[in-house]
Amino acid sequence: MKVKMLSRNPDNYVRETKLDLQRVPRNYDPTLHPFEVPREYIRALNATKLERVFAKPFLASLDGHRDGVNCLAKHPKSLATVLSGACDGEVRIWNLTKRKCNRTIQAHEGFVRGICTRFCGTSFFTVGDDKTVKQWKMDGPSYGEEEEPLHTILGKTVYTGIDHHWKEAVFATCGQQVDIWDEQRTSPVCSMTWGFDSISSVKFNPIETFLLGSCASDRNIVLYDMRQSTPLKKVILDMRTNTICWNPMEAFIFTAANEDYNLYTFDMRALDTPVMVHMDHVSAVLDVDYSPTGKEFVSASFDKSIRIFPVDKSRSRYVTTSKLFFLFDVFLS
């Protein structure tokens, strides 16, 4: 006759350390847990609702500018630092964690048209309506020192945008033509044109760093090769493109923010048709920026809304609306 004893092995219910989770014995028998699908549906619905209820997308506003903010830039080495250029020529450097302004510079007379940081994060460049390109140190001047730019380049025409190379001491400006500058020189290393309209923005490719993209007011997007110093290809859309942005994880993908309320994601090698058309905005899209993961991007529109699009979806996953924007955006982990 076999006698079955109740045996309890402490290993089965006593945790080894205090940090371990308590073991909860559970019976996974499906008959004990019926209605999986309806229950899960309700759970998912509740979770989504709660997420909406408790979402606080707006964290803070950074007060200080006396005029509208025209451009923004993020710091490449510090997640908490953001730079902003205003319409009265003022540039401010902000600390996001403290939500305070670290530094204020009267950089230009008139608009600050473009602002970009150097890849090392030690200095930044601004272009303004006063036809100058100025390089500034990121750190403030020491006591008793005058607030002065490191370099000032006086140009012949107004520059409308600026972007810095991702690896080298080179930057590009745009205006009547795309100029590529060596930081040490006062004249551009080379300048590239295709057509005669004013170019509104220029962007370096973050992966294949010799590639540039620009968009002009004659409705086209032009790609340039810095090494061969020629334009590569031009695509003409129905309406003007305001900005383009390269995907930081996929070398040949870029997204263009267009006036026809849409965003177009292109494969650089096949410009005939866009890879994806992102629509949801109800007015001209003013700016676009990729998330560093390359999976999403955020766009700002004249309809006073910001939308977040997944790269492979044509509809946005998130939207916020506010009063008025002109936006360049920051989107970090």
């Binding site: 190379h165 001491a169 080179v170 060596d182 551009p188 290393v189 080379c190 810095m226 090494r227």
Partner: peptide, 18 residues
């Protein structure tokens, strides 16, 4: 090779154009 050095190596018609 750095992108810049390449540009500087063949200034050719571009500098002229400029």
């Amino acid at each position: 090779r750095s992108d810049l050095s390449v540009v500087q190596r063949n200034p050719k018609q571009l500098s002229i154009r400029h």
